[in-house]
């Protein structure tokens, strides 16, 4: 049985179509990522699956239960971390955990122990009496994850759990997610960060309410076999961009780290041409290598591919 099944789900807000006939299925124990730009409909999808919004049409099941007609049972089987931090800032760490373990009906005799476990997992045992308001961002996120897990739900929905969190905290957070998946929990997670997509077993790329691609991260990257990516770093990135814009062999330029990624058809030929063109303008190249496409490259290519097909 699937952990999550989504069939032709549509969500309209008035005239606006936020989610446009999406379908996908998530296996048990899988980390399933929803990736997409702002307004793609990721949060809306998650909210429908949590029973917070009713779909305009289509069907969705979570743990085999219909999210509309069996919403109450669904609630006991899922944990949810919303995009915006939504625990009580004027309560302490411990009081928040207590509240949610009570609301989820964790059996009395297990409650103490479960609260301890959650605090330990979130690494907040020493801060249990602190007001949540006083915690740094990354810690709040760990607490939110903890509260979403008090009742040990088999399925977790995490909506941009790492937004606004520093890179180290993000890594720690993803380590926790991976461990949860290894323990058999199903995780549906959305993110803005391309590098995080690599942690997912499978990815659905969303754009303007539609799923434009769905596969394992590596497979998505492979589907771009006909193109290659060059990574360029130079003495004057700004001037380089102007030159590259006019360079016919470069299909697309995206910023990446300290340099840019260039999408090209024939990497060797393109490399020579770029070197020549930049030299002509007196720009020194510090790095120009063929690289594996980043998730962002994949994403942009898939979305542009989709647009091309539409035309």
């Amino acid at each position: 049985m699937w952990a999550i099944e989504v069939e032709d789900v549509v969500k309209r807000f008035g005239e606006f179509v936020a989610v446009d006939r999406i379908s996908f299925r998530v296996r048990r124990g899988e980390i399933f990522g929803l990736l997409g730009p702002n307004g793609a409909g990721k949060s809306t999808t998650i909210r429908i699956l949590c029973g917070l919004l009713a779909p305009t049409s289509g069907r969705a099941r979570v743990d085999g239960l219909d999210v509309v007609t069996q919403a109450e049972q669904v609630k006991r089987r899922i944990g949810y971390m919303s995009q915006r931090f939504s625990l009580y800032e004027d309560l302490t760490v411990e009081e928040n955990v207590e509240l949610f373990s009570g609301l989820y009906g964790v059996p009395r005799e297990r409650r103490r122990q479960r609260q301890q476990e959650v605090l330990e997992m979130a690494g907040l045992t020493a801060w249990r009496r602190r007001l949540v308001r006083a915690l740094p961002g990354g810690w709040k996120q760990r607490l939110a994850l903890g509260c979403a897990l008090v009742h040990e739900p088999p399925i977790l929905f995490l909506d941009e759990p790492t937004s606004g969190v520093d890179p180290i905290a993000r890594r720690q957070f993803w380590d926790m997610i991976v461990r949860l998946s290894e323990a058999g929990r199903t995780i549906l997670v959305t993110t803005h960060y391309m590098d995080e997509a690599a942690y997912c077993h499978r990815l659905a790329l969303m754009d303007r309410g539609r799923i434009v691609a769905l596969d394992a991260p590596a497979a998505l990257a492979r589907s771009l076999a006909s193109v290659a990516f060059l990574h360029l770093e130079s003495s004057d990135l700004w001037e380089s961009l102007k030159v590259l814009e006019r360079e016919a062999s470069v299909e697309r330029v995206t910023l990446f780290g300290a340099g840019v990624h260039l999408r090209v058809r024939d990497p060797e030929r393109a490399r020579e041409r770029i070197q020549r063109a930049l030299h002509a303008r007196g720009i020194t190249i510090s790095r120009l290598d063929v690289v594996a496409p980043s998730m962002e490259d994949v994403f942009v290519a898939v979305i542009e591919g989709g647009e091309r097909n539409e035309r």
């Binding site: 949590c50 029973g51 917070l52 109450e72 609630k75 006991r76 899922i78 949810y80 919303s82 915006r84 931090f85 939504s86 625990l87 009580y88 800032e89 949610f100 609301l103 989820y104 009906g105 509260c147």
Partner: peptide, 13 residues
């Protein structure tokens, strides 16, 4: 306003 309602609504409350 604070969004805490959203978190309550996903519990069996």
């Amino acid at each position: 306003e604070l969004g805490t309602m959203e978190q309550l609504l996903v519990t069996p409350l």
